[in-house]
């Protein structure tokens, strides 16, 4: 938002932390995920956005087709060696601040596919904020992951990513 650069020289004081809380609250409640489905987990991600679970209750129903408009990349599914450079490029195209949820066993560790074709964990190429276990995780699990991420965003405030 640009406010970080303005407030950074001021250090932590009553003004910046209050602004930080406000900014964190705002950011946490409107996390827009990139519409980036890879495999099985993408279907559960769609189910989470669907009528039964309604991700919109947490401010994240607006799945953006363009990485330029997204705050959050949900890596939903296994990442193949061929897809890895594409995924990294999409991550680089997202504007700061940005977060990553690694959804499912395959994205987090390679899952059952411990072989030549699959990247053994997406954290090898992008920094991951929240890992959601499961194969695939239930939509509730994804929502739980998102709520944990929201707490993290609130705590982060306007400080730059560490």
């Amino acid at each position: 938002m640009g406010v970080e650069q303005l407030l950074e020289p001021l250090g932590e004081n009553v003004l910046t932390t209050t602004v930080g809380k406000l900014v964190g609250w705002g950011r946490a409640n409107s996390v827009w995920p990139a519409q980036f489905g890879l495999a099985c987990c993408a279907i559960e991600m769609m189910a989470a956005a669907g009528p039964a679970y309604d991700l919109g209750r947490f401010g994240s129903e607006a799945m953006r087709a363009s990485p330029r408009q997204s705050d959050l990349m949900i890596v939903a599914g296994r990442v193949s060696q061929k897809m890895a450079p594409v995924l990294r490029q999409i991550y680089d195209q997202m504007p700061e601040p940005k977060w990553v949820i690694s959804m499912g066993a395959c994205a987090s560790t390679g899952g059952v596919f411990n072989n030549y074709a699959i990247l053994q964990g997406v954290d090898k190429i992008v920094p991951v904020d929240v890992y959601v276990p499961g194969c695939p995780p239930r939509p509730e699990d994804l929502i739980n992951g998102l709520m944990i991420l929201q707490e993290k965003i609130k705590a982060q405030g306007i400080r730059s990513r560490v």
């Binding site: 193949s80 060696q81 061929k82 059952v112 596919f113």
Partner: peptide
């Protein structure tokens, strides 16, 4: 194509007959 190549067929050769069932779930995931 190939952006989701998972190596399922190779992986099945490394698993026993009854273990390989779990991989069959995951290629056509619908």
């Amino acid at each position: 194509i190939g952006y989701l190549h998972t190596g399922i067929e190779k992986q099945m050769e490394a698993l026993r007959w009854q273990q390989a069932v779990v991989l069959t779930d995951r290629h056509d995931y619908l």
